[in-house]
Nucleic acid binder design. Structure first.
Ligand code: SF4
Ligand code: SF4
Lengths: 126, 126
DNA sequence: ATATTATAGACTGCATTTGTCTGTAATTAT
DNA sequence: ATAATTACAGACAAATGCAGTCTATAATAT
């Protein structure tokens, strides 16, 4: 079990947006060379961030991407969830037995990690 | 990012050992039918638990597996680490910049989850 | 209209996970 | 000693998910 590389990229991308807040739209090509990844792959990550409402996109000349929320609102968890989804890390079939203690311990543990990630904002690290 | 099925199996297997503590060796075939997985696959999981010193194995007639530690010593994390290994969930190359804040937030978050898993023991849920 | 931007989706290659199969080593029972 | 019983090791294959590319389409500005 590991976080995906896409999550790593997304955190760095969003940190960069936070750092550049207030400037013009950032378009794909410059972003890609700054991050050292291919434009098409970066595009897919950015689109996920758009769908999660963390950034907004505008097509056409002088278009690009920019922050949607104010920078102090964006937590680590917002970014991670946009890429990894929101399913629990540990799930078990056979949901008959809803008094399951194993699942509860695992999900309580995950919740502690998630709470920390919700508290920390990108603006704390730029 | 998800916990593997092997981890799920391992937790249930170890919980079963804790429940049966003090009885004779449990051998592969009965364990496999109790858990509803194939003996050969189960064998690989059990071998990992042996290598992590959570259970011990004895070959030959009347052999099998049994707990190595006393049941109150075994934490969730012991079992998970035996299967998933001990690497960090989030790592980043370019280790030049050792004042990295992103990595720190991620690893602090993981530590909170790990601490919870170290506190909770299997004996708490049987 | 044309150039510029993002978006969608098919597609490939790769790594990991899940699982099977076969043979070998160690121990006990006869 | 021999045979039966058990775990262990490693090769193998199938399935899944991740990483990345490519091409075509849609939307906007000039
Ligand atoms: S006890 Fe919980 S984790 Fe185990 S099989 Fe039942 S629901 Fe799943
Ligand atoms: S800032 Fe941290 S996470 Fe980002 S590239 Fe540097 S070391 Fe890696």
């Amino acid at each position: 079990m590991k976080y995906t590389k896409a999550t790593n990229y997304a955190l760095h991308i969003m940190a960069y947006f936070v750092k550049q807040e207030g400037t013009d739209n950032l378009s794909l090509q410059p972003l890609a060379s700054h991050m050292n990844i291919s434009p098409t792959y970066l595009s897919k990550i950015l689109t996920q961030l758009v769908k999660a409402d963390l950034i907004q996109s505008t097509p056409g000349a002088n278009g690009g991407y920019s922050l949607r929320k104010t920078k102090t609102e964006i937590s680590f968890y917002d970014v991670i969830q946009a890429i990894e989804g929101s399913g629990a890390l540990f799930t078990c079939e056979m949901d008959e037995n809803r008094t399951c203690q194993i699942e509860k311990v695992m999900q309580d543990a995950e919740a502690k990690m998630v709470n920390h990630l919700k508290e920390k904002r990108l603006v704390d690290v730029v």
